[in-house]
């Protein structure tokens, strides 16, 4: 186990994010937006992987935790920041990260609040409770005028840049990896495998599950903050059940409890809709002469193609794209 290497990788990732950020002025804004969306996706997928993949709990409320973090940090930026009288630099480099952490902490509190009472539930039942939580958050946000209600929250400063996005993504992946890569961390897998045996070996399974929920929702909250300051606008509709499903799909596709696989799936699934949109605006030359064939139909069929691709992948690789070790859950 070459462990100090891990920290070196983290450092390299942070430096690269910083360097990319420094030259981001010359990058096409649409492209930049997509790339940062990828970073946010990686944070979301990796943090959910801790809960769903490694600890074996089925949470369907990740978008809810993301919303809590997004609204918390956005409110800090729109309500508190203007009264501080800070300069633009201080706002972006000091206030913004602090607001991300604050958003993460509030989301973690929400995670603990949901997790603690509902962790007696297993599988489908836990999924239903977390799903309900996500919906409650969305409906509350839709009806509270102070955060914009159904109109959404506008005027969020766009502080998010490549450094913050990929810095956070690297930190998330590193944290989840480092947490798991220890004797104590192996307990998460043991809890997922067999709770009765885990308790008999001295593991406090409830505490493991709450820890997973707390850390997972912390990073979901930070991802929400990044997202808010990336788009400059928040709408409760963006944190619906479908968003949670999207993140769950990333985790499943990446192969439940594979670090790299889930990162890869997050990148792929964030790029795919954009790629299809791009493809839809092209046309291919007609080999028989005459007008070129437009690929405009792809634009309309985008979501169908996306779903078909998922179905195909699940049929061909039910254990996810990556599975170096044996599938986590024996099918027998």
């Amino acid at each position: 186990m070459a462990i100090p290497k891990a920290q070196r990788w983290l450092l390299v990732a942070l430096v690269l994010s910083g360097a990319a950020s420094a030259v981001s002025g010359s990058i096409d804004p649409y492209f930049l937006d997509v790339v940062m969306g990828v970073g946010v996706g990686v944070v979301l997928a990796s943090s959910l992987n801790l809960i769903n993949g490694f600890t074996g709990q089925f949470s369907l409320g990740h978008a809810g935790f993301m919303a809590v973090g997004a609204y918390t940090s956005a409110m800090l930026s729109t309500v508190v920041a203007p009264r501080m009288g800070w300069g633009a630099g201080a706002l972006q480099w000091v206030f913004f990260p602090a607001s991300l952490v604050a958003g993460g902490l509030v989301a973690a509190l929400a995670g603990l609040a949901v997790g603690a009472p509902s962790l007696r539930l297993k599988g489908d039942y836990l999924a239903i409770v977390t799903l309900g939580f996500g919906e409650i958050i969305r409906v509350v946000l839709q009806n509270v005028d102070a955060v914009g209600g159904a109109r959404g929250l506008t005027g969020v400063p766009t502080h998010t840049n490549l450094l913050w996005t990929f810095g956070t993504a690297s930190l998330t992946v590193y944290t989840v990896w480092a947490l798991l890569e220890s004797t104590r961390g192996r307990g998460f897998l043991a809890v997922a495998d067999d709770e009765v045996a885990a308790e008999a070996m001295g593991l406090d399974t409830t505490r493991y599950k709450i820890t997973a929920f707390g850390i997972g929702s912390f990073f979901a909250g930070v991802a929400g903050g990044l997202y808010a300051h990336l788009k400059g606008y928040l709408n409760p509709g963006g944190f619906s059940f479908e968003k949670s499903i999207e993140i769950v799909v990333m985790v499943i596709l990446g192969g439940m409890g594979r670090h790299a696989g889930v990162v890869f799936a997050a990148i792929l699934l964030t790029l795919l809709p954009e790629g299809l949109r791009e493809l839809g605006s092209r046309s291919i030359p007609n080999p028989f002469g005459g007008p070129a064939w437009s690929l405009d139909w792809i634009k309309d069929a985008r979501m169908i193609l996306y779903s078909l691709l998922l179905i195909l992948l699940m049929l061909l690789r039910p254990e996810g794209l990556f599975h170096r070790r044996q599938p986590r859950r024996p099918s027998s």
């Binding site: 043991a190 495998d193 009765v196 045996a197 008999a200 070790r325 044996q326 986590r328």
Partner: peptide
């Protein structure tokens, strides 16, 4: 345990 309960993914 009567029916072996090892952690299969470890």
């Amino acid at each position: 345990f009567q029916n072996i309960r090892l952690f299969p993914s470890l």
